[in-house]
Computed example of a mutant assay.
Amino acid sequence: YHDVGKMSNPTFFTENQTTSVNPHDELEPKESARIIINHVIHGIEIAKKHNLPDRLIDFIRTHHGTSLVFYFYNKEKQRLEGTDEEVNPEDFRYPGPEPFSKETAILMMSDSVEAASKSLKEPTATLIDNFVEKIIDKQMDEGQFLNADITFKEIQIIKKVLKRKLKNIYHLRIEYPE
């Protein structure tokens, strides 16, 4: 249910693009970020309209925390390079709140890793390990899990599980040192 809000504009999300046409190509980065961010707001509205439990709505509300829509943030920075204009990160930030339970934190980690993994071209076991570490460490550095009552040890276990799952998806064998 966490992505139910994508139903409002499904073709603006890569998992729903079946052709090479990307509607974001015609938009300014700030407008694209607004559409992406709004899937959370629309998801909450849809869930409330259909009387879904508040606990489920918590997952919709927190699955991106207060993170940046980084791709479009960077695109806007590049667009404004060489001008006097500056990018306001708040225009590219999800409204939050940050995850506030172990379960909502796990969803944030899993969703981010799964979505980003689609960009991997020729994954290796080492690449996947580093990839998962980088994504979740960034979330930790941003303080996304500070309210989630989740331990560092539990986050390490989640990383291990996500690495194993991605390696299974890509049918990779474990690399043994020589």
Rank of each mutant, 00 (worst) to 15 (best):
P99S: 07
Y94Q: 06
F92L: 06
N9P: 04
L80C: 08
P123L: 04
E86W: 11
H63L: 00
A105Q: 02
P177G: 08
E178W: 01
E154P: 11
P10H: 12
P123V: 02
P29G: 03
T126Y: 03
E98H: 08
L56D: 14
A105G: 09
D91C: 04
E90C: 04
F152A: 13
E15F: 14
N168C: 11
E28K: 12
K160H: 10
L120E: 00
E26I: 02
E114P: 02
E45P: 02
H24E: 01
D84P: 03
P89N: 09
T11R: 14
Y94G: 00
V161K: 09
N9D: 09
A33W: 01
I135C: 03
K6L: 10
G82S: 09
A116N: 10
I35V: 06
H64W: 10
A105D: 04
K77C: 11
N168V: 08
H2C: 06
R173G: 15
I106Y: 09
S20R: 12
N88E: 09
K102A: 08
N51A: 14
T11K: 15
N147H: 11
V161L: 12
I37M: 12
K167N: 12
L162A: 04
D137F: 01
L146D: 14
S20G: 09
K30A: 01
R34L: 06
S112L: 11
H63V: 01
H2S: 08
Q78W: 08
T14Q: 13
H2A: 09
D149L: 09
V21P: 02
D137N: 11
L146P: 03
P95G: 08
N168S: 14
R93N: 04
V40N: 00
N130M: 05
Q139L: 14
I36P: 01
K77H: 06
Q156I: 09
F152E: 14
Y71Q: 03
G143K: 05
S101E: 05
T126H: 03
I136H: 02
T62G: 03
Q156Y: 04
A115I: 12
K165D: 12
K102Q: 11
T126E: 05
S8V: 15
D129F: 03
E175T: 13
M109T: 07
Q139V: 00
I106G: 05
I46M: 15
I44S: 07
